[in-house]
Simulated scan of single mutants.
Amino acid sequence: MTTYLCPVDGVRAAVDSAPWCCPECGSPWDLEFTAAPVPLKSLGQRVNSLWRYEEALPLPTKAVSLGEGRTPLVPMTPTVCAKLDFLMPTLSFKDRGAVMLAELALRLGPERVHRVVADSSGNAGTAVAAYCARAGLSCTVYVPESTSPKKTEQIRAHGARLKRVQGDREATARAARAAADEEGTFYASHVYNPYFLHGTKTYVYELWEDLGGSLPEAIAVPVGNGTLLLGASLAINELHAHGLIADRPQLIAVQAEAVSPLAAAFHAGEDDLGTEFLATLKPPAPTLAEGIAIPRPPRARQILRAVRESGGTFLTVTEDRIRVAQMELASRGLFVESTGVACWAAVGEWTDRTVAVPLCGAGAKTGLAI
């Protein structure tokens, strides 16, 4: 099994005995793992799920798989294509990372893991609940009180215990982290556990395969905690290091204007979301894009660095634009939840470069944005 590494102070810890964050500074872990080249020509003979990229994954087994991954890539305009990641077993892209966390928890064994705890605004929680059900693991999911009833219904349907938390997404995360410190608890955090990022990176491996061994000039990604963006960055770096792509695409990070601390920091030239800088921002406002309404993401420094190194940028979208974008996609046959339409809202009319956008969650999870 590979080793956790703290990107801030260099602390290392064995995966099978590590706390959920760096014990020295409290930062999320990275993973000391080197991917091998994925052979494009032989992929057609492999399992039709994200596990086909086995050389790039830190877990070689797939005991809890539900066939996740390999979602369709659909042209929307001459320059914009959309990846339909809402066509996953739990109807969101979070399945890519959740299957890794459930697989890891199962592999750690019952002597180490008695229950799984997660926190979420909805989609990550439903995904963790589903894959824990598949693995036969006890699961508790913490969500904000405002979470969509359809998502909480789905969490309960998978047999997970639901804990509603008064307050915002940050309050929910604090409650889950307190529970995560209990003996025998595995914190299936899509933010703190790097195995999740190695699941989300398969999004880019699929783009690369579907485009015949190339990538578009830009990849747009909705950003709250940044798990899809950081996974995309991992995959791009791996593919480039192995000589499997000649050029790295730009990463276009999209936030709701109502909650856009990373966009503000990026355009102000900040390297992180420091306390002094956050004090200069307007308080977060309610947004339809609940899945990316994160006022202080723990991996902020990594997200900002990844976007800058790619030559990309941050864009923001208004609530009115989110509403319009949802209806635009619905008129084309794609009913996507309000968070999932953010990238289409930002770059759907681009014509100056090729760009891929993820449609991350199904509209049935939240209904129409009103």
Rank of each mutant, 00 (worst) to 15 (best):
I294C: 08
Q166M: 12
A285L: 14
R296H: 14
T318H: 07
P284T: 11
T318N: 08
G184K: 06
L66M: 15
P297T: 09
L73E: 00
Y142M: 09
R174L: 14
E349W: 08
R299Q: 05
T318D: 05
S214F: 03
D181F: 10
G312W: 00
L137Q: 02
R12C: 06
P110M: 09
D30P: 05
S65I: 06
V165R: 01
E217D: 08
M76E: 08
I236R: 02
E270K: 15
A18D: 01
P58Y: 00
F314G: 07
K163L: 09
S17M: 09
E337K: 08
A124G: 15
T2Q: 11
L91S: 15
R299D: 02
T185A: 02
C21P: 02
L315S: 06
T366Y: 01
L87H: 09
L31Y: 03
A124H: 13
T172K: 05
T354K: 10
A346K: 06
H198P: 00
V191L: 09
P295D: 02
A178Q: 15
V99G: 01
V113E: 01
S138N: 13
V341T: 11
E145P: 02
V223T: 07
W29C: 06
R164M: 08
E290K: 14
R323N: 05
S189P: 03
H198L: 10
A127R: 06
A130D: 03
E182D: 13
A293Y: 01
K62M: 12
S148Y: 06
G44T: 10
L59W: 00
H190F: 06
R308A: 12
P72T: 12
V341N: 04
P144S: 11
T77K: 08
Q154T: 15
A369T: 08
P295L: 04
A325L: 05
L229Y: 01
W51C: 03
A130S: 11
A289H: 04
D95I: 07
N123Y: 04
E153K: 14
